[in-house]
Nucleic acid binder design. Structure first.
Lengths: 321, 321
DNA sequence: CACGGCTCTCGACAAAAGTCAAATTTGGAT
DNA sequence: ATCCAAATTTGACTTTTGTCGAGAGCCGTG
């Protein structure tokens, strides 16, 4: 009588409890098991996505500032996490909000592109579970063998796991040492298919990286701090899906970019919903670049960043007649 | 200090509790209110649809019988409520399941047609709340001034209320005394618009009525028991959205139908998702008629009814070579 | 300006849910 | 065949949550 507690049993318990509104002990009676088991099944049901608990993110878009930002930056939707009004750690609040927004944007049957970074991994980590079997999560860029837990493939897999979706990983390094090798690898059928499949995505999730010595690209050894500084002088404004963009949001013409295996900006721009999440206030310029380049249609930021964006947009509008 | 507890506060509490996973007392501290108030806000949040708790209805479609029924009857999806395995009252189980399925089928921006009957009202009554502001719920058929609580307009309004959606009522009686009057009324701009708007629906929810003295049409005085019996002899097989259909699922050619103000069968067939819910085993023949007439693409029934449908389909298949 | 009626809030109790270590069962390995 | 490790179930205990009636602030009215 201790067979694998068939998914069926979890489902029945969840059904009686959440849909019918029975109490745990009533459910236990119905199913002839102890109440403790019911409690355990219910936890599993939540962790498996058999039951879904979601809170509307309406409040964060209802904000007047969010509306104005949507207009000023021509974005489809903006969510603003009210800093310091809620929790001790505001960055967590942004990630929690981003996870909710993400789940709200996902539709059954969708194909989702996921980039990488601390922000993306944090979101994956706190995201609640869902049951979206016919969803595919694809990795947007090559891998970086880093000691961190937010490697591109890990971000992809973790999100796929949370959604009960299929995860498609990228079996290639993010950066190669020569342009020839990168070109050759991009032509490989396996890689080519993955790259060309990116424009079929319905939704993309990424953050933006800063061009400084703290960048993951430096930490993971893809670039040295000196190289990064040099690129900055050449006009580098931000990092998206492992690639370096200039202030206009276009790919910077540099050797590094030519050696990268990642989703082309053109493929990204084709994706219908591009959700960008920015936690750090320091990423103001990189974010401006990404927006300028049309790399984001949906935006989740903190109140402080929102205010800066709005001020900036206002100033630009004055300058331009 | 006893101002209307702004929706904002409810939202904040729900956010901290459900999205961040804080305990009620932690939320109470954050917001500087008592834990009891937090508990109350959370209840309101659930009742308003600010938080959504839904359980996957997967199990009920996974059933082998459901799959076979989908094939045999050429339906898009079938859900089977396992009778007597669950609760004392099996009909409640069907309604709870139907409500979940309904909520699962609704999409933001949808237009939903709702008919009327005890079944539909039961579903509305147990349906959990959701926050779908841009959804419109339209009434599929004219009104019947009945002493019951499941008048067409009530079904529509209740569902609209649960979804936080707009409700569009039909300000016309279901049946008129002469065909001329009915024709004239149908030509009225207000009514005509409502009728023509029905084919724009994305989803319809209805049940099927039996052709007997217990029918709502008789109880509400639209027809006498004798008239009903006569119609039955003329080939009436079921009642859908207040109209009488024959065994082939086509409108029966009779005076009553010509005097009715309701959604034409053609308009209904245009709707993408037609969800039919049947609670009573006695409605076997009416259901067969509705299916034959292509009036249903999605079906929720009890296990017993499912078995009968399957047996019937098997028998028909044998007869036809 | 005092008065009910109203809604919101809180403290305290009761009910329900979560948790843990021990007991039981299973399936596979020796 | 027997034993071990892993997984599941349970009863007892603790923590968390739901609820009720009393009290307090607000508002329109007499």
């Amino acid at each position: 009588m201790a067979i694998r507690p068939a998914e069926q049993l979890i489902h029945k318990a969840a059904w009686l409890y959440y849909a019918h509104g029975l109490r745990q002990d009533e459910v236990a009676n119905q199913l002839n098991i102890s109440r403790a088991s019911v409690a355990m099944y219910l936890r599993k049901a939540r962790e498996t996505g058999i039951v879904n608990i979601s809170t509307s993110t309406q409040l964060f878009t209802d904000d007047i500032m969010a509306r104005r930002l949507e207009d000023a930056l021509k974005l489809d939707a903006v969510w603003i996490a009210p800093e310091n009004a809620y929790l001790a750690d505001p960055s967590t609040d942004i990630a929690v909000l981003a996870a909710s927004v993400f789940l709200e944007l996902v539709r059954k049957g969708d194909r989702i592109g996921v980039a990488w970074g601390r922000t993306v991994y944090t979101i994956a980590d706190i995201m609640s579970y869902a049951d979206l079997q016919d969803v595919t999560v694809v990795q947007l860029c090559g891998n970086l063998g880093a000691p961190y837990s937010y490697r591109p493939d890990q971000c992809t897999m973790e999100i796929a796991r949370r959604l009960n979706a299929k995860g498609l990983n990228f079996y290639a390094p993010l950066v190669l040492s020569t342009e020839e090798l990168a070109q050759g690898l991009r032509a490989e059928p396996v890689i080519r298919d993955q790259l060309s499949g990116i424009s079929d995505c319905d939704l993309a999730l990424y953050s933006i990286g800063a061009v400084d010595a703290d960048s993951h690209l430096v930490k993971c050894g893809a670039l040295t701090a000196a190289e990064m500084a040099a690129l900055r002088k050449e006009g580098a404004a931000g990092v998206i899906a492992g690639q370096i963009i200039d202030a206009g949001g276009e790919l910077l013409d540099c050797s590094y970019n030519r050696r990268v295996i990642s989703a082309g900006l053109a493929s990204l721009r084709v994706i219908g919903k591009r959700l960008m999440v920015v936690q750090e206030d320091s990423k103001f310029e990189p974010l401006l670049a990404a927006i300028a380049g049309g790399l984001c249609t949906h935006l989740v930021v903190g109140a402080h960043m929102a205010q800066r964006l709005l001020d900036h947009a206002g100033a630009s509008a004055e300058k331009a007649p």
